[in-house]
Design a protein around this nucleic acid. Structure first.
Length: 269
DNA sequence: AGACAGGGGAGTG
DNA sequence: CACTCCCCTGTC
């Protein structure tokens, strides 16, 4: 078992806040599946204990080299967000693989977390390769280009999203997807919006969770509720207005503020 | 048992 | 903008 010292980091908040789907908690360890990798990890105090991955991967995946205090300071605009941050301090935005992230959020429309989780596990089981770690069984996530079989996709219970996945699978390749990391928020977003099944919300999730666009501000029903309650006196406001307000009000790291508000609002239910 | 909602998107007016 | 339908699943 390897270990790694961390600060300003909470593994539980980071994994469970709804940004990632293929993980399971077994006997105190999180077993995390992402693309080709399967690793186990737990946190005790300020130490991470892990197996089947590397320090280098974990630092990148959990963005451990990012200046957390600077980000927190940057988004701490008022008492609402300060309170929220305080209760979830240590939550970080994971740097996901853009392909798995794109397919994940393609599955998320008109759905819910348990179902998205189920869909992704089925897709992996159906199209990926079996892998195990200490008795835990999982499957690799299929590669770009491998999701072209309609009937098999349908069997993964994704419903009408099967057609979106199939079309996205053939209309963007991995290198183009990855290259969006180097593009601006606007350029990258416009490219994603051309893909079938990708609207504002899905695009912003992919940008924030996998393409290094920390200013993206995805607006779903939970963020809408939280934002209207805290910043719009409970008035009904359009998603567009919420997004634009969120981005300009919180600034460069608006996506972090978004994730704090999102998870906090979901915990309240 | 049947209605309904669940982390949207696309098409229409 | 506002409205409707999209297919599936879990829940009451």
């Amino acid at each position: 078992m390897n270990s790694l010292s961390v600060k300003d980091f909470r593994l539980d908040y980071t994994l469970e806040c709804g940004q990632i789907f293929r993980y399971d908690k077994v006997d105190g360890y999180y077993f995390v599946s992402h693309r080709d990798s399967l690793f186990k990890i737990k946190q005790i105090g300020n130490k991470l204990y892990y197996k089947n991955t590397s320090k280098k991967f974990l630092k990148s995946f959990f963005r451990l080299d990012e200046d957390y205090k600077k980000i927190i300071k940057n988004i701490s605009k008022d008492n609402h967000i300060k309170r929220t941050i305080k209760s979830l301090y240590g939550l970080r935005i994971i740097k996901q693989d853009p392909w798995e992230c794109l397919i994940s959020y393609l599955c998320s429309s008109n759905s819910n977390i348990p179902k998205i989780k189920k869909n992704l596990n089925l897709i992996s089981k159906c199209f990926g390769k079996r892998i195990t770690l200490d008795g835990f069984e999982s499957y690799t996530f299929p590669n770009p280009g491998e999701l072209s079989h309609s009937k098999k996709l349908w069997s993964c219970k994704v419903g009408y999203r099967a057609d979106f996945i199939k079309k996205v699978n053939r209309s963007i390749n991995y290198s183009e997807l990855r290259s969006l990391r180097k593009k601006s928020y606007g350029i990258a977003k416009n490219r994603l919006l051309q893909l079938p099944g990708v609207g504002e919300k899905v695009a912003d999730c992919v940008l924030l969770f996998s393409l290094d666009k920390s200013n993206a501000f995805p607006v779903d029903v939970w963020i809408k509720r939280a934002m209207q309650e805290l910043y719009f006196k409970n008035k009904n406001v359009s998603n567009k207005e919420i997004r634009e307000f969120g981005q300009s009000y919180f600034g460069e790291y608006a996506g972090y503020a978004n994730q704090f508000l999102f998870y906090n609002r979901r915990l309240l239910k």
